[in-house]
Structure formats: C-alpha cells, structure tokens
Amino acid sequence: MKRRNLLATVGIEVVLIAMSVVFLFPLLWLISTALKPIEETMRIPPVWIPSKLQWNNFADAMTYGADKLGYIPFLVYARNTLLLCILVVAGTVASNTVVAYAFARLRWRGRDAMFAATLATMMVPFPVLMVPTFALFRHLEWIGTFRPLWVPAWFGSAFSIFLLRQFFRTLPFELSEAAKIDGASEWRVFRDVVLPLCKPAIAVVALFAFMGTWNDFLGPLIYLLDQKTFTLALGLQFYQSQHGGTQWNLLMAASTIVVAPVIVLFFFTQRLFIQGIALTGLK
C-alpha cells in the first residue's frame, strides 16, 4: 500500500480519539456514580471523581434489604440468571450442532427448502409469536417456571443453525469420508471428527446464546411471576422502579453488576467475539 501522508494519519487519529472519549464516557460515568457516596451524586456542578471510593455500594446493591421482607437480594437474581444461561447455552450447543450437521453435511430430501424456510424465520418478530406461545406454555402449565425460557433452546434456532452450517461446510468432506471408510457411524463422525474441529464456531454460538439470555427482558417479564425467580435484567428493572430517582449510586452499582460479567467475558474471548460478529455479516 502507498504511504499515506502524515497529515491524514494524524487527522484520523484525532477523530478516533475524540470518538473514543464520547463512547467511553457513559461507561466511565456509570462506574464513577457507582463508587460515589449518595450526596455526591446530586451535587451541581457534578463531582467527576468520587472523593472517597465507596466500594461497599456494590455490596449494598447486591444484598440490599436481604434481611427485609420483599426485597430479594441481587444474588438470587444472579443465581437464577446463571442457571438459565447454563441451560440455554447447553441446549443451543447440543441441538444446533446436530441440526446444522444435518443441513451442512447430510443429503436428504427437502433440505434446501427447509434451510430457506429457516432463514426466512429470522424475519418473524417475537411479538407475533408472543400470544400463542404464551397460550402454549399456559396449556403446558409452565408459566411461572423457567421452562418457557430454556426448553425452546433445545430445539434449535435459525440463527445458530445458519452460523454453524456455514462453518461445517468449510471442513473438507474427505475427512468424514475417511472416517466412514474406517467404519465410523455418522454419529461417530459428527462427534469425533466434525465437532472437535468446530470448537471455535461452537464457542461463538454459545457466546451469543449466553448474551441473549443474560440480556433477555421480555421473556422473563412475561413468563416469570415470583420475585424469587426473577433474572438480573428483570430484577434491575424492578430495582429501578422502586429506587429510581433516589439512590442513583446503588442503582448504578447494580447496573455495573449486570454489565460487568459481560464485559469481563468479552475481554477473555475477544477474538471469538469479533470473529463471530464478522461472520454474522456473511451473505
């Protein structure tokens, strides 16, 4: 590539730095508020950096009113969210790898039509399905349990099938042919040849499933009834409606608790994330 002139490089650098400040600012403000004593949140002009870091805001937000009736500690929400995430991620991986294998590496009648239909379902907005799905789970007497939120994950999702299929198709067919010549069954080929080679793809799908469950608000809002079964997203909204406009420092500490695990996860799996998102844009 031709050497760019210095001026342009500096210009781009300056714009990027300015934009970074803009993008980082809300997150920094979140953390700054979360670490402030309550008086400093209300001061005008604003206090940028807390005079004394109130780490106990986090502990307070996590256990707020644990001894009092009616306030469910954040830890319970966290546990519920974690349970759901495990079940959803496990289900997503278990079902979609198998299904995507069928779409990518097996021949059966109606496969391509089914695949097209699968892609088309990505256009179906959740609100259309909301009412009948609720009626269905009602019929199964699953309302108020976690089941409506994780069971569907065990039966495949269009997006994950699509992503995994694309991956599976990049593996050379000779690989499975060779294994079959050795007498391996289709299941063995899937389990021992294809799956191990697709770990990065599976990780991407798992990551997205985790994020989706962690962030989901509408599902828990509809299906969960009892506070002790609430997830973090729902709990945070409940917390906000109870304490909004009051203890902004605790509210921001609670928000940080919801945000932090995702960001930590990102730093550990950065490469996967970026790979996965780049792949989302594939045609």
Partner: peptide, 30 residues
C-alpha cells in the same frame, strides 16, 4: 485427527451431568 482432536470420553457425560444438575436446581428454585 481421530485421537488427538476427539472429545474426551468425559465430555458428553460431563455435559449432561452439568445440565441435569442445573435443571434440578432450576426446578427447586421454582
């Protein structure tokens, strides 16, 4: 390929063990 990369014999049972434990926990919570 088959030996180095294949899943350990404990992967699948372990996977289902974790799922079963979580499932049990999620039902008890409710």
């Amino acid at each position: 390929i088959l030996s180095v990369n294949r899943l350990s014999d404990f992967t699948l049972p372990g996977f289902f063990l974790v799922v079963a434990a979580t499932l049990a926990a999620s039902e008890i919570v409710v």
